[in-house]
Structures are given as C-alpha cells and as structure tokens.
Design a binder for these strands. Structure first.
Lengths: 329, 329
DNA sequence: CTGAAAGCGCTTACAG
DNA sequence: CTGAAAGCGCTTACAG
C-alpha cells in the first residue's frame, strides 16, 4: 500500500506538503505542487480514508434513512441523492427504518457512529416519540423528522392545484382519499385539498366532497375505491383524488374490476408521479414532485450546514394524463 | 468524546484490555470483563470506528452496486441485503451504475477506497470490458460481474418451469419475449425456455414458438406486445412468456389497448415476481425469484470469504395468478 | 491472562 | 510557503 510517505519521498517534499496539495489547501506553490501531483499519479496513490477520518472526524459519506427503499418514490429520491453525493465525491449509506421509529432510531445511531458528513432522513410515519442525540447535520426530507430542517414539496399547494384541475374540468362531486393523518404529508395534502375546495365552493355552484382515510398503499386504495364505487347509488362522485399514486392506482384497479370506465365515468388523480403513474391504464393524472430538486436541496442543506432549522418548500405541477376528463353529461 | 482510555481508567485496567473485551477477543477473565463492560455502559462509550478501521483496514460496511435502485427488483434485493447486513452490525453503502460499465467501475473503485468488508455487485448489462483491481471480497448477484463468484436464481430452470406451466395449460402457440442477449440472465432465461419447449415438442402435438428480442422494461414489452398482437391474422399465439415482469406488464398494457382479453384470449407470464406483479390487472402469473435467499447467500459469500469463485444457483417457483388460463377452444 | 508500547496513515498547528 | 512533529483512537504483537 502506498502512503503519503512514499509520495513525499518520490516528490522530494515533506508529507505535510503532500497532504496539503491533496486536501486542496491552496498554499503550496506551483513547482512543488506539480511534483507532488506527478508522484501521486505515478504511484497511483489513494489516500487512506480511514486515517483521514480519524484525524478529521468526518468521512465523505451521506447517511440516508428511508422507511422502505422498495417504495418507488423513495427509490427515486435515493437515486437522485446518490447522484448528487457522487458529484461531491461522497458515497451514500442506506438504511431502511421499515417505518418503525425504534428501528429508525437504531439505524440513525448506527449511521452516526460512522461519522458521516450528514444525515438525510425520510421519517417513519410512526408517531412514538424518541429522543435523539446526533452531532452531525441532519435534514429531514419529504417527511419531517423531529424538529430538524425540512426539505419537501409544498404538499398543501400541490393538493390545491389538483383540486383546481378537477374543478376546472367541471367536477363537483368529489371523493378525497387522504393519507395517514399521523403523518404531516398526509395532513398537509388533505388540508390543501379541502381548503381549496372550500374556497371554490359557492352556493350557486356547490361542491359535494367526501373524505376517506387510507394508508399510502395500493391495497388501501383498492379497498376504499371499492367502498366508494359500491355505494354509487347513495352518492356518486365524478372524481376521486387520492393522496398519492399508489392509492390512486388502487382505485383504478377497483374501478376496472367493477367495470367503471376511467375517465369516462370517473376521473382519478394521484400525487407524486412515480414511474408507474405513466404506465398504468389509463395513465394517471397526478402531481409531480420535483424529486431532483428535493434531492439537491437536501444535500445542499447538509453541506451548507445551515442549522437554522429552515423549511424549504419546493413546488411541482400537475401532470395531466388520461385518468381525468371533463364532465360531459 | 469518550475513548478507550476513559473506559480503561474508570475500569482500572489497561486500554488493551478494554479493546480486547470490545472485540470479543475471548481471553479477559470474568471480573475484569465485567468491570470494563460496566464502564462502557456507564460512560456510554462508542468506539471510534475510523480509528478501528485505520488499524484493521476493514470497516463494517458492505458496498452494493446496482444498475438502478428504482428498478423494483433491485430495490427488493437491496432491502433484503440491508436487513442481512444490519443483522451483522454492518451498514450498506449504495451506488448506482446507471447500467454503464464506466460509471460502474468508478463506483466500485470509490467504494473499495472506503475499505468495506466486501462488495456485492449486480453487474451493468453493458458489455464493454474494463479491468478491475480490488483487494476485497466481491460477489456478483443476479447478473454476473466479471469472473467473480455469482449468486443468482437458476434462470434456466425457472424459465423451463414457466414453459411447463404454459404447456400444461394446453398452450401450443407461444411467443417468447427475450431479455437483452448481451446479458447472461437474458440468455439463460431464453435458453431455458427454448430448450424446454424443444423437449416438449412432439410431432404428434407440435408447438409453434416465436422469439422476440426486447429490453427488460415496460416500454419494450408494450412495443413488442403491440407487434405480436397486431399480426394476429398471420400467426396467433395463445400465450406470451416474457423474460421479466416489466416486459409482461407492458404486454398486458398492449393487450388492454387492443381489446384482447387476458387470460381468456391470451395468457401472459412474467419473471421475477416484483411487487407490482400482484397488483396489475389481471394479476400476473410469474416466476418468483427467492429474493431473500439471494440476499442471504450473497452476504454469506462475503463473510465466509470463499474465494473459490463459486456459483450459487437458487431455485424459485411459478406463482400462478390470473394472467394465465387453460385453453378451452 | 494482562499491561506497556508501538504504530496504522493521515492532518494540522507550530516554527521558521 | 514548507518542514518537522505531534497526535487522532484504536489494535495487536510482545513480554511477563
């Protein structure tokens, strides 16, 4: 294994100098610098990262804790985060919390022990309260984690835009399938939707809205979809807006099983724009979260190390596809 | 920060002793051991991992390189690997190769620089040849990486089982959509299918088989599906077997668009059993890869450090769902 | 079985 | 601007 000593010897300088040019420490004048660089190249020297870590107490790693990497939305976020990290010569360490606060806590402390540059955590939706002590920058992404800085989409606004879309198509009988109300995302999306509907609602042109509570998964969407569609005689919605794409896709499935044509008889909207949204039949109208920007902002927050506990809200837009249409009858 | 010195002082022993009990070095007699453990607990001591790494040249990390974490199959593998790693108090470092050998190489060398215990790589399907020099255990998973040990499903056998399933349902007109033939998985699955069909084929009861070449994605499946279904007058298959679930789901989509009932008019099978397979309409009959076992075997291979360049082939089974049915006419 | 000590490969004040 | 030297916190021969 070649070390700074070898490089120093070959370049005819001290190890301190080698270290300085490697850490881009400015100083070190041209001639020396060149000799060092030449030697580094020549010997194919790679600094021992553990030694560096021991001295600096930092390692070029970003820790990422997600509830479940198989959730397509989190996978996309993880991918973008990794891409951003690589740009900065960092690696990412991945941990799943399985949406369980206790596991989350263990994972966070395991990651912290490795002294990464910072931690990005997409919080478990679980509500139990656990104390954390971490001595590195932490930023929560998408789902707020404790009282750390948050980078997320403006869910409130996004839901409002979906409501606008449906309204503009003429829908006045609307079902909203909310996400779990013990999560901030779930609450914000619901509130955004409800409050916009409330604004739009006029006595001369009333909107009838019903709200259902679900989880953020396919099964839940399918179940609730079935419930809604089964009672069509009692109350017939012309549109159902779901708090995320999985829910919406579940509804699509229920509709298909029950021979209800989407969008002819029922418009359906999602939220997130996971890859699958554009692949289901019919392709899903949804709200696209700015995934790349979210990832960038989260990484940025780690590096600027702004401990102001700030909130970064990014906006996205409605992607209109085939699952929504104007009311014709 | 509390160090071994602090612990040693409190326990009234030498730092060597502390280190020895922490590294489960057997030796160290009960009385001392207990005092050390008490001090560790008392001071909430956590060893500095970087220091340990510097000495041992190893860190409790598994590097994982995948083509793309947003591929649901890889995400599931990654999740299982992470679970296994945690069981052994290891973390996992994740890198995407974007299915590009050059990026893969950079990622691998970046990970190796961090001296993980080992590397699990799901190879890029790209074919260019690049030299690697790594000094840690490497095992390829699912897709063979160079000439390193491979842990994978027995694709040949799996495809054969799918062929059997279709045959037993009475299908004799079959289309096979192969995966990219520059990947070993693609080739093995195809060969497994073709060779079984070949065995089953009798003059008295002939099978007509056509093979199409695709990529492992939805679009490709949809395109090819459309092609096959558009020429139904020329040649009408009663079943199409796809080399993976994404392809099959693409076919399902094409069939739906073209008003062809699955499975009544056409049976469709996939391969992998990604989560989505059981959520599409109709639910997809497919071959389930033993994901958990694959992950376990890969991790196991890293730890036993069996450099025999062995091949571990795990078998899975056909999951019969709604997309296949017997031929009735 | 345990302690004293060397040393892993860096970085970074401290001089000059 | 550069060198000599200390030291980060562990582990592990080496004695005894």
């Amino acid at each position: 294994m070649t070390t700074v000593r070898d490089v120093a010897k070959q370049a005819g300088v001290s190890v301190g100098t080698v270290s300085r040019v490697l850490s881009k420490n400015d100083t070190v004048k041209q001639p020396l610098k060149e000799r060092v660089l030449a030697a580094v190249n020549n010997l194919n020297f790679k600094p021992n990262l553990a030694a560096r870590a021991l001295r600096t107490n930092k390692v070029d790693v970003i820790g990422l804790v997600v509830p479940d990497i198989t959730n397509p939305f989190f996978a996309q976020l993880a991918k973008c985060i990794e891409t951003e990290a690589v740009k900065r010569d960092h690696s990412v360490m991945l941990a799943n919390s399985h949406d369980d606060v206790e596991i989350e806590q263990k994972q966070i402390s395991a990651l912290s022990d490795r002294t990464p540059r910072g931690l990005i955590v997409i919080a478990a939706s679980d509500t139990r309260n656990i104390e954390y002590e971490v001595d590195i920058p932490v930023v929560s992404l998408d789902r707020r984690f404790k009282d750390f800085s948050l980078v997320s989409t403006d869910h409130f606004d996004g839901s409002a835009k979906i409501a606008d879309h449906l309204y503009s198509l003429g829908h006045r009988q609307i079902a909203y399938i909310a996400g779990p109300q013990n999560t901030e995302v779930g609450r914000e999306r619901k509130e955004g939707f409800l409050s916009r509907v409330d604004n739009l609602n006029k006595e001369s042109d009333p909107i009838s809205l019903r709200v259902f509570n679900g989880q953020f998964d396919y099964e839940s969407g399918e179940d609730i979809g079935r419930t809604i569609l089964a009672s069509l005689k009692t109350w017939r919605p012309t549109a159902v807006a779901a708090a995320n794409d999985q829910l919406a896709i579940g509804v699509l499935r229920a509709a298909r099983d029950m021979k209800i044509e989407v969008p002819a008889e029922l418009s359906v909207t999602g939220f997130d724009d996971i890859e699958l949204a554009s692949l289901v039949v019919p392709r899903l109208t949804t709200f696209r979260q700015p995934i790349e920007l979210l990832a960038k902002a989260a990484i940025e927050a780690i590096f600027t190390n702004d401990f102001e506990n700030l909130e970064t809200r990014l906006s996205g837009g409605v992607i209109v596809r085939e699952s929504t249409s104007v009311i014709t009858d």
